[in-house]
Design a protein around this nucleic acid. Sequence first.
RNA 1: GCUCCCAUCGUCUAGCCCGGUCUAGGACAUCGCCUUUUCACGGCGGUAACAGGGGUUCGAAUCCCCUUGGGAGUACCA
Length: 480
Amino acid sequence: MTVRVRFAPSPTGYLHIGGARTALYNYLYAKATGGTFVLRIEDTDLERSKAEYEALQIDDLKWMGIIHDEGPDRPNPKYGPYRQSERLDIYMKYAQELIEKGMAFYDFCTDEELEAMRAKAEADNLDPHYSGKWREPQHWEEAKARVAAGEKTAIRFKVPKKSYELNDKVKGKVVYPDNMVGDFVIMRSNGLPTYNYCCVIDDWLMDITHVIRGEDHLNNTVRQLMIYEALNAKIPEFAHVSLLIGHDRQKLSKRHGATSVNLYRNEHYLPEAMCNYLCLLGWSHPEERDIFAKEDIVNLFSLERFSASSAMYDLEKLKWVNSEHIKKMDNASLITLVEKEPETEFFRKQTPEWKNACVELLKRYAQFVPDFPKLVNELILNDDPEMTDPLKEILSWETTPKILSFISEEVNKFSSEFVTETELNGWMDHVKKEMGVKGKPLFQGVRAALTGHDHGPDLKFLIPLTPINVLKNRIAHLNK
RNA sequence: GCUCCCAUCGUCUAGCCCGGUCUAGGACAUCGCCUUUUCACGGCGGUAACAGGGGUUCGAAUCCCCUUGGGAGUACCA
Protein backbone atom coordinates (compact mmCIF):
# COMPACT_ATOMS: atom_id res chain seq x y z
CA MET A 1 0.00 0.00 0.00
CA THR A 2 1.53 3.28 -0.99
CA VAL A 3 1.24 6.19 1.34
CA ARG A 4 -1.01 9.09 0.40
CA VAL A 5 -1.05 12.11 2.68
CA ARG A 6 -2.64 15.49 2.28
CA PHE A 7 -2.50 19.06 3.44
CA ALA A 8 -5.92 20.69 3.34
CA PRO A 9 -5.80 24.42 4.01
CA SER A 10 -8.71 26.80 3.98
CA PRO A 11 -8.05 29.79 1.76
CA THR A 12 -9.06 32.29 4.42
CA GLY A 13 -5.76 34.09 4.79
CA TYR A 14 -2.04 33.76 4.36
CA LEU A 15 -0.30 30.49 5.14
CA HIS A 16 0.07 30.25 8.89
CA ILE A 17 3.23 29.03 10.61
CA GLY A 18 1.28 26.17 12.14
CA GLY A 19 -0.19 25.22 8.79
CA ALA A 20 3.22 25.30 7.21
CA ARG A 21 4.51 22.94 9.87
CA THR A 22 1.66 20.50 9.28
CA ALA A 23 2.21 20.71 5.55
CA LEU A 24 5.90 20.08 6.06
CA TYR A 25 5.28 16.96 8.14
CA ASN A 26 2.95 15.59 5.50
CA TYR A 27 5.42 16.40 2.77
CA LEU A 28 8.28 14.83 4.68
CA TYR A 29 6.29 11.72 5.39
CA ALA A 30 5.39 11.36 1.73
CA LYS A 31 9.03 11.77 0.73
CA ALA A 32 10.22 9.38 3.42
CA THR A 33 7.86 6.66 2.31
CA GLY A 34 7.88 7.27 -1.42
CA GLY A 35 4.25 8.28 -1.12
CA THR A 36 2.12 11.02 -2.63
CA PHE A 37 1.50 14.42 -1.10
CA VAL A 38 -1.90 15.81 -2.01
CA LEU A 39 -3.01 19.41 -1.68
CA ARG A 40 -6.72 19.88 -1.18
CA ILE A 41 -8.48 23.19 -0.82
CA GLU A 42 -11.15 23.33 1.88
CA ASP A 43 -13.16 26.28 0.70
CA THR A 44 -16.60 25.46 2.01
CA ASP A 45 -16.76 28.49 4.26
CA LEU A 46 -18.18 30.90 1.72
CA GLU A 47 -17.85 33.96 3.90
CA ARG A 48 -14.19 33.62 4.72
CA SER A 49 -12.75 31.81 1.72
CA LYS A 50 -11.17 33.89 -1.01
CA ALA A 51 -9.77 32.53 -4.23
CA GLU A 52 -6.67 34.71 -4.11
CA TYR A 53 -5.56 33.20 -0.83
CA GLU A 54 -5.33 29.80 -2.46
CA ALA A 55 -2.66 31.03 -4.84
CA LEU A 56 -0.91 32.93 -2.08
CA GLN A 57 -0.74 29.89 0.16
CA ILE A 58 0.48 27.62 -2.60
CA ASP A 59 3.14 30.17 -3.38
CA ASP A 60 4.34 30.29 0.21
CA LEU A 61 4.39 26.51 0.33
CA LYS A 62 6.43 26.48 -2.84
CA TRP A 63 8.81 29.01 -1.34
CA MET A 64 9.43 26.61 1.52
CA GLY A 65 10.04 23.83 -0.94
CA ILE A 66 6.89 21.99 0.07
CA ILE A 67 5.70 20.92 -3.33
CA HIS A 68 2.58 18.84 -3.75
CA ASP A 69 2.32 15.91 -6.12
CA GLU A 70 -1.40 16.34 -6.64
CA GLY A 71 -3.65 19.35 -6.28
CA PRO A 72 -5.92 21.73 -8.15
CA ASP A 73 -3.07 22.62 -10.48
CA ARG A 74 -1.78 19.03 -10.78
CA PRO A 75 -4.86 16.89 -10.92
CA ASN A 76 -4.89 13.15 -11.03
CA PRO A 77 -8.04 12.27 -12.99
CA LYS A 78 -8.70 9.44 -10.59
CA TYR A 79 -9.04 11.75 -7.61
CA GLY A 80 -10.02 15.28 -8.58
CA PRO A 81 -11.38 17.84 -8.30
CA TYR A 82 -9.29 19.12 -5.42
CA ARG A 83 -11.38 22.07 -4.33
CA GLN A 84 -14.23 21.17 -2.07
CA SER A 85 -16.39 23.83 -3.66
CA GLU A 86 -16.14 21.77 -6.87
CA ARG A 87 -17.16 18.54 -5.17
CA LEU A 88 -20.56 19.58 -3.87
CA ASP A 89 -22.49 17.01 -5.89
CA ILE A 90 -20.32 14.26 -4.45
CA TYR A 91 -21.07 15.29 -0.90
CA MET A 92 -24.77 15.50 -1.63
CA LYS A 93 -24.79 12.11 -3.28
CA TYR A 94 -23.32 10.36 -0.25
CA ALA A 95 -25.50 12.35 2.11
CA GLN A 96 -28.55 11.07 0.22
CA GLU A 97 -27.22 7.56 0.55
CA LEU A 98 -26.88 8.01 4.28
CA ILE A 99 -30.45 9.22 4.43
CA GLU A 100 -31.62 6.20 2.44
CA LYS A 101 -29.78 3.96 4.88
CA GLY A 102 -31.44 5.72 7.81
CA MET A 103 -28.11 7.01 9.06
CA ALA A 104 -28.87 10.66 8.46
CA PHE A 105 -31.99 12.76 8.37
CA TYR A 106 -33.38 16.07 7.17
CA ASP A 107 -33.73 18.60 9.92
CA PHE A 108 -36.11 21.54 9.74
CA CYS A 109 -35.48 22.98 13.17
CA THR A 110 -34.93 26.72 13.29
CA ASP A 111 -32.04 28.36 15.11
CA GLU A 112 -34.45 29.36 17.85
CA GLU A 113 -35.68 25.80 18.32
CA LEU A 114 -32.11 24.53 18.42
CA GLU A 115 -31.22 27.15 20.96
CA ALA A 116 -34.21 26.26 23.13
CA MET A 117 -33.23 22.61 22.90
CA ARG A 118 -29.75 23.38 24.18
CA ALA A 119 -31.04 25.57 26.98
CA LYS A 120 -33.48 22.92 28.11
CA ALA A 121 -30.88 20.16 28.05
CA GLU A 122 -28.59 22.34 30.08
CA ALA A 123 -31.31 23.10 32.60
CA ASP A 124 -32.08 19.39 32.92
CA ASN A 125 -28.38 18.66 33.37
CA LEU A 126 -28.23 16.66 30.16
CA ASP A 127 -25.69 16.79 27.36
CA PRO A 128 -26.54 19.70 25.08
CA HIS A 129 -27.29 17.49 22.14
CA TYR A 130 -29.84 17.61 19.38
CA SER A 131 -33.16 16.15 20.47
CA GLY A 132 -35.48 17.36 17.72
CA LYS A 133 -38.30 15.24 16.40
CA TRP A 134 -36.76 14.87 12.95
CA ARG A 135 -34.32 12.23 14.10
CA GLU A 136 -37.32 9.90 14.55
CA PRO A 137 -38.15 7.76 11.50
CA GLN A 138 -41.90 8.42 11.76
CA HIS A 139 -41.27 12.00 10.53
CA TRP A 140 -39.05 11.08 7.62
CA GLU A 141 -41.82 10.72 5.03
CA GLU A 142 -43.02 14.21 5.89
CA ALA A 143 -39.47 15.47 5.68
CA LYS A 144 -38.93 13.99 2.23
CA ALA A 145 -42.14 15.52 1.04
CA ARG A 146 -41.08 18.95 2.21
CA VAL A 147 -37.71 18.59 0.52
CA ALA A 148 -39.41 17.39 -2.66
CA ALA A 149 -41.52 20.51 -2.48
CA GLY A 150 -38.31 22.52 -2.70
CA GLU A 151 -37.79 23.43 0.91
CA LYS A 152 -34.18 24.12 1.90
CA THR A 153 -32.95 22.07 4.81
CA ALA A 154 -29.94 20.79 6.68
CA ILE A 155 -28.99 17.14 6.87
CA ARG A 156 -27.88 15.72 10.18
CA PHE A 157 -25.97 12.57 10.89
CA LYS A 158 -27.75 10.25 13.29
CA VAL A 159 -25.12 9.57 15.89
CA PRO A 160 -24.99 5.97 17.17
CA LYS A 161 -25.07 5.61 20.92
CA LYS A 162 -21.71 3.95 21.36
CA SER A 163 -18.16 4.85 22.23
CA TYR A 164 -15.35 5.05 19.71
CA GLU A 165 -11.67 4.35 19.92
CA LEU A 166 -8.74 5.72 18.01
CA ASN A 167 -5.15 4.60 17.94
CA ASP A 168 -3.40 7.82 17.23
CA LYS A 169 0.22 7.72 16.12
CA VAL A 170 1.09 10.59 18.43
CA LYS A 171 -1.42 10.43 21.25
CA GLY A 172 -1.78 6.70 21.51
CA LYS A 173 -5.11 5.19 22.42
CA VAL A 174 -7.92 7.72 22.67
CA VAL A 175 -11.37 6.71 23.86
CA TYR A 176 -14.38 8.82 22.99
CA PRO A 177 -17.29 8.19 25.33
CA ASP A 178 -20.72 7.55 23.84
CA ASN A 179 -22.17 10.89 24.90
CA MET A 180 -19.50 13.06 23.40
CA VAL A 181 -21.42 14.44 20.47
CA GLY A 182 -24.99 14.77 19.36
CA ASP A 183 -26.46 14.46 15.88
CA PHE A 184 -24.38 16.87 13.89
CA VAL A 185 -25.03 18.65 10.63
CA ILE A 186 -23.29 17.19 7.61
CA MET A 187 -24.96 19.27 4.91
CA ARG A 188 -25.95 22.82 5.65
CA SER A 189 -29.21 24.24 4.36
CA ASN A 190 -27.24 26.31 1.84
CA GLY A 191 -26.14 23.06 0.19
CA LEU A 192 -22.57 23.13 1.48
CA PRO A 193 -21.09 20.31 3.51
CA THR A 194 -19.58 20.76 6.94
CA TYR A 195 -15.95 20.07 7.67
CA ASN A 196 -16.25 16.83 9.59
CA TYR A 197 -18.27 15.32 6.82
CA CYS A 198 -16.61 16.40 3.61
CA CYS A 199 -13.20 15.85 5.11
CA VAL A 200 -14.02 12.17 5.47
CA ILE A 201 -15.61 11.88 2.05
CA ASP A 202 -12.52 13.39 0.49
CA ASP A 203 -9.96 11.49 2.49
CA TRP A 204 -11.82 8.32 1.67
CA LEU A 205 -12.31 9.00 -2.04
CA MET A 206 -8.76 10.30 -2.40
CA ASP A 207 -7.39 7.14 -0.79
CA ILE A 208 -5.63 9.06 1.96
CA THR A 209 -3.74 6.56 4.10
CA HIS A 210 -2.36 8.84 6.82
CA VAL A 211 -3.93 11.95 8.24
CA ILE A 212 -1.29 14.15 9.86
CA ARG A 213 -2.90 17.27 11.26
CA GLY A 214 -3.11 19.53 14.30
CA GLU A 215 -4.28 18.36 17.69
CA ASP A 216 -7.18 20.78 17.54
CA HIS A 217 -8.85 18.14 15.37
CA LEU A 218 -8.49 15.36 17.89
CA ASN A 219 -11.98 15.82 19.30
CA ASN A 220 -13.46 16.13 15.83
CA THR A 221 -12.10 12.78 14.93
CA VAL A 222 -14.88 10.96 16.71
CA ARG A 223 -17.39 12.46 14.28
CA GLN A 224 -15.20 11.46 11.41
CA LEU A 225 -14.86 7.95 12.74
CA MET A 226 -18.66 7.72 12.72
CA ILE A 227 -18.83 8.80 9.11
CA TYR A 228 -16.14 6.33 8.06
CA GLU A 229 -18.13 3.63 9.75
CA ALA A 230 -21.39 4.67 8.14
CA LEU A 231 -19.71 4.72 4.76
CA ASN A 232 -18.09 1.39 5.43
CA ALA A 233 -14.84 3.07 4.47
CA LYS A 234 -11.34 2.12 5.50
CA ILE A 235 -10.12 4.31 8.34
CA PRO A 236 -6.72 5.90 7.72
CA GLU A 237 -3.96 6.19 10.29
CA PHE A 238 -4.15 9.39 12.30
CA ALA A 239 -1.31 11.43 13.73
CA HIS A 240 -2.47 14.43 15.73
CA VAL A 241 0.48 16.70 16.10
CA SER A 242 0.65 19.00 19.10
CA LEU A 243 -0.19 22.65 18.63
CA LEU A 244 2.11 25.62 18.41
CA ILE A 245 1.63 28.11 21.21
CA GLY A 246 2.75 31.68 21.85
CA HIS A 247 4.61 33.11 24.80
CA ASP A 248 1.42 33.19 26.85
CA ARG A 249 1.01 29.47 26.14
CA GLN A 250 -2.13 30.13 24.10
CA LYS A 251 -2.64 28.69 20.65
CA LEU A 252 -0.51 30.68 18.25
CA SER A 253 -2.54 33.38 16.52
CA LYS A 254 -2.24 36.80 14.95
CA ARG A 255 -1.97 38.58 18.24
CA HIS A 256 1.34 36.81 18.86
CA GLY A 257 2.91 38.86 16.10
CA ALA A 258 4.33 37.43 12.92
CA THR A 259 2.48 34.18 12.40
CA SER A 260 2.23 34.02 8.65
CA VAL A 261 4.98 32.51 6.57
CA ASN A 262 4.73 35.42 4.20
CA LEU A 263 6.11 37.84 6.76
CA TYR A 264 9.26 35.79 7.21
CA ARG A 265 9.57 35.45 3.51
CA ASN A 266 9.41 39.21 3.14
CA GLU A 267 12.11 39.61 5.73
CA HIS A 268 14.25 37.25 3.69
CA TYR A 269 14.52 34.43 6.15
CA LEU A 270 15.97 31.39 4.45
CA PRO A 271 13.27 28.88 3.51
CA GLU A 272 15.57 26.04 4.56
CA ALA A 273 15.86 27.64 7.99
CA MET A 274 12.09 27.99 8.30
CA CYS A 275 11.63 24.32 7.45
CA ASN A 276 14.41 23.29 9.79
CA TYR A 277 13.06 25.23 12.72
CA LEU A 278 9.41 24.34 12.18
CA CYS A 279 10.30 20.69 11.80
CA LEU A 280 11.97 20.71 15.20
CA LEU A 281 8.94 22.16 16.94
CA GLY A 282 7.36 18.91 18.00
CA TRP A 283 9.55 16.46 16.18
CA SER A 284 13.07 15.41 17.07
CA HIS A 285 15.93 14.21 14.94
CA PRO A 286 16.95 10.64 15.83
CA GLU A 287 20.53 11.79 16.32
CA GLU A 288 19.45 14.99 18.04
CA ARG A 289 20.83 17.14 15.26
CA ASP A 290 19.32 20.56 15.12
CA ILE A 291 20.65 21.97 11.90
CA PHE A 292 19.70 20.11 8.77
CA ALA A 293 18.14 20.46 5.35
CA LYS A 294 14.91 18.76 4.32
CA GLU A 295 16.92 16.48 2.06
CA ASP A 296 19.02 15.35 5.02
CA ILE A 297 16.07 13.91 6.85
CA VAL A 298 13.80 12.45 4.22
CA ASN A 299 15.35 9.09 4.89
CA LEU A 300 14.85 9.19 8.61
CA PHE A 301 11.63 11.09 9.04
CA SER A 302 9.04 9.01 10.84
CA LEU A 303 5.82 9.41 12.76
CA GLU A 304 7.48 7.90 15.82
CA ARG A 305 9.36 10.95 16.98
CA PHE A 306 6.60 13.45 17.59
CA SER A 307 6.25 15.13 20.94
CA ALA A 308 2.81 14.86 22.49
CA SER A 309 2.88 18.24 24.20
CA SER A 310 2.53 21.63 22.61
CA ALA A 311 5.55 23.66 21.59
CA MET A 312 6.20 27.32 22.13
CA TYR A 313 7.15 29.26 19.06
CA ASP A 314 10.43 31.00 19.81
CA LEU A 315 11.72 33.66 17.45
CA GLU A 316 15.17 33.68 19.05
CA LYS A 317 15.85 30.11 18.12
CA LEU A 318 14.49 30.61 14.62
CA LYS A 319 16.95 33.46 14.19
CA TRP A 320 19.76 31.27 15.37
CA VAL A 321 18.76 28.50 12.96
CA ASN A 322 18.70 31.06 10.18
CA SER A 323 22.19 32.28 11.02
CA GLU A 324 23.47 28.71 11.10
CA HIS A 325 22.09 28.11 7.62
CA ILE A 326 23.83 31.26 6.44
CA LYS A 327 27.13 30.03 7.81
CA LYS A 328 26.63 26.66 6.19
CA MET A 329 25.77 28.04 2.78
CA ASP A 330 28.44 28.13 0.08
CA ASN A 331 29.75 31.57 -0.84
CA ALA A 332 28.55 31.48 -4.42
CA SER A 333 24.91 30.99 -3.40
CA LEU A 334 25.25 33.55 -0.70
CA ILE A 335 26.63 36.11 -3.14
CA THR A 336 23.71 35.47 -5.47
CA LEU A 337 21.28 36.09 -2.65
CA VAL A 338 23.07 39.20 -1.44
CA GLU A 339 23.05 40.68 -4.91
CA LYS A 340 19.28 40.40 -5.03
CA GLU A 341 19.05 42.69 -2.04
CA PRO A 342 18.38 46.39 -2.54
CA GLU A 343 21.23 48.89 -2.18
CA THR A 344 23.97 46.51 -3.16
CA GLU A 345 25.34 48.47 -6.14
CA PHE A 346 28.75 48.76 -4.58
CA PHE A 347 28.85 45.08 -3.72
CA ARG A 348 27.81 44.04 -7.21
CA LYS A 349 30.55 46.11 -8.85
CA GLN A 350 33.36 44.34 -6.99
CA THR A 351 35.55 41.52 -8.26
CA PRO A 352 34.62 37.90 -7.60
CA GLU A 353 37.58 37.64 -5.22
CA TRP A 354 36.42 40.65 -3.25
CA LYS A 355 32.85 39.35 -3.01
CA ASN A 356 34.04 36.00 -1.88
CA ALA A 357 36.26 37.44 0.82
CA CYS A 358 33.49 39.78 1.86
CA VAL A 359 30.79 37.18 2.41
CA GLU A 360 33.34 34.85 3.97
CA LEU A 361 34.12 37.51 6.55
CA LEU A 362 30.62 38.84 7.08
CA LYS A 363 28.73 35.59 7.31
CA ARG A 364 30.10 35.20 10.78
CA TYR A 365 28.29 38.34 11.80
CA ALA A 366 25.09 38.08 9.80
CA GLN A 367 21.93 36.39 10.97
CA PHE A 368 19.95 37.25 7.87
CA VAL A 369 20.75 37.87 4.24
CA PRO A 370 19.74 41.54 4.49
CA ASP A 371 22.39 41.89 7.19
CA PHE A 372 25.05 41.70 4.48
CA PRO A 373 24.29 45.01 2.82
CA LYS A 374 23.81 46.51 6.26
CA LEU A 375 27.20 45.30 7.38
CA VAL A 376 28.89 46.36 4.16
CA ASN A 377 27.46 49.78 4.69
CA GLU A 378 28.41 50.05 8.33
CA LEU A 379 31.78 48.40 8.25
CA ILE A 380 33.08 49.10 4.77
CA LEU A 381 31.35 52.07 3.18
CA ASN A 382 30.60 54.39 6.03
CA ASP A 383 33.19 57.20 5.88
CA ASP A 384 31.69 59.42 8.53
CA PRO A 385 32.20 57.61 11.83
CA GLU A 386 29.83 58.27 14.66
CA MET A 387 31.63 59.80 17.62
CA THR A 388 30.73 57.29 20.26
CA ASP A 389 32.12 57.49 23.76
CA PRO A 390 34.49 54.54 23.37
CA LEU A 391 35.79 56.04 20.15
CA LYS A 392 36.33 59.44 21.75
CA GLU A 393 38.26 57.78 24.50
CA ILE A 394 40.62 56.02 22.13
CA LEU A 395 41.11 59.26 20.24
CA SER A 396 42.04 60.98 23.48
CA TRP A 397 44.99 58.71 24.20
CA GLU A 398 48.27 60.45 23.56
CA THR A 399 49.46 57.86 21.02
CA THR A 400 46.36 57.93 18.88
CA PRO A 401 46.85 61.30 17.14
CA LYS A 402 50.31 60.20 16.10
CA ILE A 403 49.01 56.97 14.69
CA LEU A 404 46.25 58.85 12.94
CA SER A 405 48.59 61.27 11.23
CA PHE A 406 50.94 58.49 10.17
CA ILE A 407 48.09 56.41 8.76
CA SER A 408 46.70 59.50 7.12
CA GLU A 409 49.95 60.16 5.30
CA GLU A 410 50.29 56.54 4.23
CA VAL A 411 46.76 56.33 2.95
CA ASN A 412 47.04 59.54 1.00
CA LYS A 413 50.08 58.18 -0.81
CA PHE A 414 47.97 55.40 -2.26
CA SER A 415 46.64 55.43 -5.75
CA SER A 416 45.52 51.79 -5.97
CA GLU A 417 41.97 51.04 -4.99
CA PHE A 418 42.62 48.79 -2.02
CA VAL A 419 45.24 48.35 0.66
CA THR A 420 46.67 44.86 0.87
CA GLU A 421 47.06 42.85 4.02
CA THR A 422 50.84 43.08 3.63
CA GLU A 423 50.70 46.85 3.45
CA LEU A 424 48.50 46.97 6.49
CA ASN A 425 50.97 44.79 8.36
CA GLY A 426 53.71 47.19 7.33
CA TRP A 427 51.85 50.06 8.95
CA MET A 428 51.31 48.07 12.09
CA ASP A 429 55.01 47.28 12.22
CA HIS A 430 55.93 50.87 11.69
CA VAL A 431 53.71 52.04 14.53
CA LYS A 432 55.04 49.32 16.73
CA LYS A 433 58.74 49.67 15.98
CA GLU A 434 59.27 53.26 14.92
CA MET A 435 56.68 54.81 17.21
CA GLY A 436 57.08 52.42 20.11
CA VAL A 437 53.37 51.74 20.50
CA LYS A 438 52.24 48.28 21.39
CA GLY A 439 49.40 46.27 22.89
CA LYS A 440 46.06 47.89 23.36
CA PRO A 441 47.06 51.42 22.24
CA LEU A 442 48.48 49.92 19.05
CA PHE A 443 45.54 47.78 18.04
CA GLN A 444 42.84 50.05 19.28
CA GLY A 445 44.55 53.09 17.84
CA VAL A 446 44.97 51.61 14.38
CA ARG A 447 41.45 50.24 14.44
CA ALA A 448 40.02 53.60 15.42
CA ALA A 449 42.06 55.40 12.78
CA LEU A 450 41.08 53.02 9.99
CA THR A 451 37.54 52.04 10.85
CA GLY A 452 36.18 54.72 13.11
CA HIS A 453 34.95 51.98 15.43
CA ASP A 454 36.17 50.69 18.74
CA HIS A 455 35.41 47.12 17.72
CA GLY A 456 34.65 44.98 14.70
CA PRO A 457 36.02 42.19 12.53
CA ASP A 458 39.71 41.43 12.31
CA LEU A 459 41.47 44.36 10.63
CA LYS A 460 43.55 42.19 8.34
CA PHE A 461 40.35 40.94 6.70
CA LEU A 462 38.30 44.10 6.91
CA ILE A 463 40.74 46.74 5.67
CA PRO A 464 41.66 45.02 2.38
CA LEU A 465 37.96 45.13 1.54
CA THR A 466 37.63 48.83 2.19
CA PRO A 467 38.11 51.20 -0.78
CA ILE A 468 40.97 53.66 -0.35
CA ASN A 469 38.68 56.63 -0.91
CA VAL A 470 36.51 55.61 1.96
CA LEU A 471 39.57 55.30 4.16
CA LYS A 472 40.74 58.75 3.12
CA ASN A 473 37.40 60.37 3.85
CA ARG A 474 37.05 58.54 7.11
CA ILE A 475 40.42 59.72 8.31
CA ALA A 476 39.64 63.24 7.21
CA HIS A 477 36.47 63.14 9.32
CA LEU A 478 38.38 61.73 12.23
CA ASN A 479 41.02 64.44 11.96
CA LYS A 480 38.48 67.18 12.46
C1' G B 1 -20.03 23.00 32.94
C1' C B 2 -19.00 18.51 30.11
C1' U B 3 -15.44 15.63 27.07
C1' C B 4 -10.65 14.76 25.21
C1' C B 5 -5.36 15.74 25.25
C1' C B 6 -0.80 17.26 27.68
C1' A B 7 2.91 17.83 31.92
C1' U B 8 11.67 16.92 31.99
C1' C B 9 16.11 23.35 32.64
C1' G B 10 13.13 30.29 31.01
C1' U B 11 12.41 27.90 25.74
C1' C B 12 12.85 23.52 22.10
C1' U B 13 13.89 18.71 23.47
C1' A B 14 16.70 13.37 24.53
C1' G B 15 15.48 9.64 27.88
C1' C B 16 9.63 7.13 29.02
C1' C B 17 6.76 2.26 25.08
C1' C B 18 10.91 -2.52 26.80
C1' G B 19 11.82 0.40 35.09
C1' G B 20 18.40 0.02 37.18
C1' U B 21 23.74 2.36 32.58
C1' C B 22 20.15 9.42 34.78
C1' U B 23 24.60 12.42 40.71
C1' A B 24 18.88 13.42 33.86
C1' G B 25 22.10 14.46 28.01
C1' G B 26 21.90 18.18 23.87
C1' A B 27 20.41 22.96 21.68
C1' C B 28 18.60 28.33 22.07
C1' A B 29 18.84 32.23 25.48
C1' U B 30 21.73 33.84 29.72
C1' C B 31 26.22 34.39 32.76
C1' G B 32 31.64 33.81 33.34
C1' C B 33 36.48 32.86 31.46
C1' C B 34 40.00 32.38 27.32
C1' U B 35 41.78 33.82 22.60
C1' U B 36 48.63 39.30 20.90
C1' U B 37 43.28 45.34 21.20
C1' U B 38 37.71 44.66 20.14
C1' C B 39 33.52 41.63 18.89
C1' A B 40 27.95 41.10 16.14
C1' C B 41 33.38 35.76 15.48
C1' G B 42 35.57 31.35 17.76
C1' G B 43 36.85 28.11 22.08
C1' C B 44 35.96 26.54 27.13
C1' G B 45 32.97 26.45 31.34
C1' G B 46 28.73 27.76 34.77
C1' U B 47 23.55 28.55 36.43
C1' A B 48 19.13 25.96 35.36
C1' A B 49 14.31 20.71 34.96
C1' C B 50 11.77 15.04 35.97
C1' A B 51 4.49 19.82 38.70
C1' G B 52 2.62 17.68 43.72
C1' G B 53 0.88 13.39 46.37
C1' G B 54 -0.01 8.36 46.76
C1' G B 55 0.88 3.46 45.12
C1' U B 56 3.51 -1.05 42.39
C1' U B 57 8.74 -2.60 42.89
C1' C B 58 14.81 -4.46 45.84
C1' G B 59 14.76 -0.12 42.57
C1' A B 60 10.50 4.91 38.99
C1' A B 61 11.83 10.69 35.08
C1' U B 62 10.26 5.92 33.21
C1' C B 63 4.32 1.69 35.12
C1' C B 64 -0.79 2.77 37.82
C1' C B 65 -4.13 6.22 40.51
C1' C B 66 -5.43 11.02 42.43
C1' U B 67 -4.63 16.30 42.71
C1' U B 68 -3.02 20.63 40.48
C1' G B 69 -1.82 23.30 36.25
C1' G B 70 -2.08 24.09 30.97
C1' G B 71 -4.32 23.28 26.15
C1' A B 72 -8.24 21.84 22.78
C1' G B 73 -13.19 20.68 21.50
C1' U B 74 -18.20 21.31 22.63
C1' A B 75 -21.35 25.66 15.60
C1' C B 76 -25.79 24.99 9.57
C1' C B 77 -16.31 27.55 11.09
C1' A B 78 -12.40 24.79 9.34
